[in-house]
Amino acid sequence: MSLSEKSAAIAAALQAQSEFPLLRGERIALRGPRDEDADALFALFSEPQVMRYWSRPAMRGRDEARALIDNIREGQQQRTMFNWVIADAADVAVGSCTLFQFDAVHRRAELGYALHPSQWGRGIAREAASLTLDWAFDGLGLHRVDAGIDPDNDASRALLHRLGFVTEGRQRESFFVGDRVTDSELLGLLAADWRARR
């Protein structure tokens, strides 16, 4: 298959996703958001520990969580973003995992994730990211997935390195959160490296 055919196949695969693909792991599922997830998403994105390294301020009201759900649905409908809810065994939302910044021509996207502190240290973020990367590389046929983190976020860097991401550089003063400006550490994972680790 030529490069242009591979790019066209990715674009077609994205357009074929009329709904959120349901990705199931051993302990969690990645699914589309529901209206009743608003309280759980507010609990996640209003939590100071979660938002410490995020590129936006913590949520202050549940209306922001409801707006986020609308934004997630719009991104999926336009095929610009797939922002799954991480649901536990009881189908309660405990986090989110996102593929965004799709570039079909260059066959890449960016990964993001957030997990409520009550779930930290259990391997849930790794399981969610692994499900997403399997879908990105095997389901869509991407060649590369990028990630950007606050350079002070040691836990996120460690997770990404365990997944096979390589730190490739640093962008200076690339995000403002309120009056604070931060750098971005840039990491990348190639499909061949991901498959070699499985």
Score class of each variant (00 low, 15 high):
Met59Ser: 08
Asp134Trp: 00
Cys97Glu: 11
Leu41Val: 14
Asp154Arg: 04
Leu133Glu: 05
Gly141Leu: 11
Gly112Lys: 04
Ala9Val: 05
Ala125Tyr: 03
Glu26Arg: 08
Asp193Glu: 12
Gln101Tyr: 01
Gln49Cys: 07
Pro48His: 14
Arg73Val: 04
Gln76His: 12
Asp39Ile: 14
Gly188Trp: 09
Ser2Ala: 13
Glu185Gly: 03
Thr182Glu: 07
Ser4Asn: 10
Glu26Ser: 05
Phe45Gly: 01
Asp152Trp: 07
Ala16Ser: 15
Asp134Tyr: 00
Gly123Tyr: 05
Ile72Tyr: 12
Ile149Pro: 04
Ala43Ser: 01
Gly123Asp: 11
Asn83Leu: 09
Phe45Tyr: 08
Asp179Val: 02
Arg195Asp: 03
Asp91Lys: 00
Gln17Ile: 06
Ile10Tyr: 02
Arg107Ile: 03
Asn83Gly: 07
Ala11Phe: 13
Gly164Ser: 15
Asp138Lys: 07
Phe20Met: 03
Ser96Trp: 11
Val50Pro: 03
Ser18Thr: 15
Gly112Thr: 06
Asp193Tyr: 02
Ile86Ala: 09
Arg62Val: 14
Pro151Phe: 08
Ser2Gln: 10
Asn71His: 05
Ala104Arg: 06
Asn153Tyr: 00
Phe20Pro: 03
Leu22Ile: 10
Val85Ala: 10
Arg79Gln: 15
Pro151Leu: 09
Asp150Glu: 01
Arg162Cys: 14
Asp70Val: 02
Pro57Tyr: 10
Arg198Gln: 14
Val166Glu: 09
Leu111Lys: 14
Val85Glu: 01
Gly121Ser: 04
Val177His: 10
Met1Thr: 13
Val92Tyr: 08
Gly123Ile: 06
Gln17Tyr: 04
Arg24Met: 00
Thr98Pro: 05
Pro48Cys: 14
Ala93His: 13
Ala65Trp: 06
Arg197Val: 00
Asp179Ser: 09
Arg122Val: 11
Leu187Ile: 14
Ala128Ser: 11
Ser7Lys: 02
Pro21Ile: 12
Gly178Tyr: 07
Arg66His: 09
Leu190Glu: 09
Ala192Ile: 03
Pro48Arg: 15
Arg107Leu: 05
Tyr113Arg: 01
Asp152Glu: 12
Ala12His: 13
Ser96Thr: 15
Leu159Gln: 08
Lys6Pro: 11
Leu23Ser: 03
Ala192Met: 06
Leu44Glu: 05
Trp135Lys: 06
Arg157Ile: 08
Asp103Cys: 03
Pro48Phe: 11
His106Leu: 00
Ser2Met: 11
Ala93Gln: 11
Ser156His: 00
Ala11Arg: 15
Ser55Cys: 02
Thr132Glu: 08
Arg122Glu: 14
Phe165His: 09
Asp146Thr: 06
Ile149Glu: 04
Glu26Tyr: 01
Arg172Pro: 01
Leu160Glu: 04
Val85Tyr: 03
Glu168His: 02
Glu173Asp: 07
Met1Tyr: 09
Leu44Pro: 09
His116Arg: 00
Ser130Glu: 15
Asp146Pro: 02
Val85Ile: 12
Arg79Asp: 13
Glu36Tyr: 00
Leu189Val: 07
Ser174Arg: 11
Gly32Ser: 04
Arg122Gln: 15
